[in-house]
Simulated scan of single mutants.
Amino acid sequence: MSCFKLPIGLCNDIEKLIQKFGGYKEEIDEKFIGKIGRLCKPKAQGGLGFQDLCKFNDAMLAKRFWQLVTNTDSLLYKVFKSKYFPNGNISYAKPNSGSFAWRSVLRARKVISIGARWRIGDGTQIRIFNDNWLPHECDGKIISPPSIIPRNATVFALIDSGSCWWNSQLIDESFLPFETQKIKDIPLCAIA
């Protein structure tokens, strides 16, 4: 489950087998226990703790993707990098005609991108208008249209190199007020 994206039909079949393994018939399920949604609730909420296998499969693939992002010394990372993204980053790799394992792991990129946020650091790798880097409950992307700042600029352009702090004037002129406040609230470390 952590290497390949399982087809939805297979996940549904396995879930049905899990229901049968519990010794429940469909009529009894509907009357006393409920459908699979109720069976998948955590035990603390009155369910039986069964997993939604499609979501579990996505989570396991996302874990594998995250291991590739964070553990660049692993053999798996080195093999995938040399074959599928030799000149770039796994986050921007193209889902070309690779192995089924590679395409499965790349599908999990979407799961990671929903919740992942960049940490600013020096800001040289974070694209202002394309990457998730704003904190809090929003999706993390800038929604202000590019005006003064080019579309492909990095967050480094927003940092005053003299003070190692945000360039307040540029930020105020370039972004919506709520984004301006969120940007200025992000702490920066000293750039070496």
Results as ranks from 00 to 15, higher is better:
residue 101 A to L: 11
residue 157 A to D: 07
residue 114 I to T: 10
residue 60 M to D: 01
residue 152 N to F: 09
residue 181 Q to W: 06
residue 19 Q to F: 01
residue 144 S to Q: 14
residue 25 K to W: 06
residue 38 R to P: 00
residue 82 S to D: 12
residue 144 S to Y: 14
residue 79 V to T: 07
residue 175 F to P: 15
residue 189 C to L: 07
residue 46 G to T: 09
residue 111 V to R: 06
residue 19 Q to W: 01
residue 176 L to R: 10
residue 113 S to V: 06
residue 75 L to N: 05
residue 116 A to G: 10
residue 60 M to R: 05
residue 67 Q to V: 00
residue 117 R to F: 10
residue 77 Y to V: 08
residue 23 G to T: 04
residue 144 S to A: 12
residue 3 C to D: 13
residue 177 P to G: 09
residue 153 A to S: 15
residue 7 P to A: 02
residue 111 V to P: 00
residue 36 I to T: 03
residue 87 N to D: 04
residue 74 S to V: 02
residue 117 R to E: 10
residue 27 E to P: 00
residue 119 R to S: 15
residue 153 A to Y: 08
residue 20 K to Y: 09
residue 169 Q to R: 10
residue 61 L to Y: 06
residue 111 V to C: 11
residue 70 T to L: 09
residue 71 N to Y: 04
residue 38 R to C: 04
residue 97 S to E: 13
residue 109 R to C: 07
residue 1 M to W: 08
residue 104 S to F: 09
residue 103 R to V: 00
residue 12 N to V: 05
residue 34 G to R: 03
residue 103 R to Q: 14
residue 161 S to P: 11
residue 175 F to M: 14
residue 102 W to H: 07
residue 105 V to A: 01
residue 8 I to N: 10
residue 64 R to C: 12
residue 129 F to N: 06
residue 77 Y to R: 03
residue 52 D to E: 05
residue 137 E to C: 07
residue 169 Q to T: 14
residue 54 C to E: 13
residue 81 K to N: 02
residue 23 G to A: 09
residue 101 A to H: 02
residue 14 I to S: 01
residue 153 A to M: 08
residue 170 L to W: 02
residue 58 D to L: 13
residue 10 L to G: 02
residue 185 D to H: 04
residue 34 G to L: 06
residue 33 I to F: 10
residue 29 D to N: 08
residue 80 F to Y: 15
residue 76 L to G: 01
residue 77 Y to K: 05
residue 87 N to I: 00
residue 73 D to T: 04
residue 37 G to F: 01
residue 105 V to F: 04
residue 41 K to C: 11
residue 51 Q to P: 00
residue 64 R to E: 08
residue 104 S to P: 15
residue 55 K to R: 03
residue 180 T to D: 02
residue 179 E to G: 13
residue 90 I to W: 05
residue 21 F to L: 13
residue 178 F to A: 05
residue 6 L to M: 15
residue 18 I to R: 02
residue 69 V to I: 11
residue 7 P to K: 04
residue 143 I to K: 15
residue 77 Y to F: 15
residue 179 E to A: 08
residue 96 N to A: 10
residue 33 I to E: 00
residue 134 L to K: 13
residue 5 K to I: 15
residue 20 K to G: 08
residue 100 F to K: 07
residue 1 M to C: 14
residue 96 N to D: 04
residue 161 S to L: 13
residue 64 R to K: 09
residue 9 G to Q: 08
residue 101 A to F: 03
residue 63 K to Q: 05
residue 80 F to P: 07
residue 57 N to V: 10
residue 85 F to E: 09
residue 65 F to K: 05
residue 192 A to W: 08
residue 52 D to P: 02
residue 105 V to Y: 06
residue 31 K to T: 05
residue 58 D to Q: 12
residue 68 L to H: 01
residue 29 D to A: 02
residue 100 F to G: 00
residue 40 C to S: 13
residue 39 L to R: 04
residue 45 Q to P: 00
residue 1 M to N: 11
residue 178 F to E: 14
residue 9 G to H: 04
residue 192 A to Q: 11
residue 75 L to H: 03
residue 69 V to T: 03
residue 109 R to G: 06
residue 72 T to G: 01
residue 12 N to Y: 01
residue 26 E to Q: 09
residue 5 K to M: 10
residue 18 I to P: 00
residue 163 S to W: 02
residue 147 S to N: 11
residue 121 G to L: 13
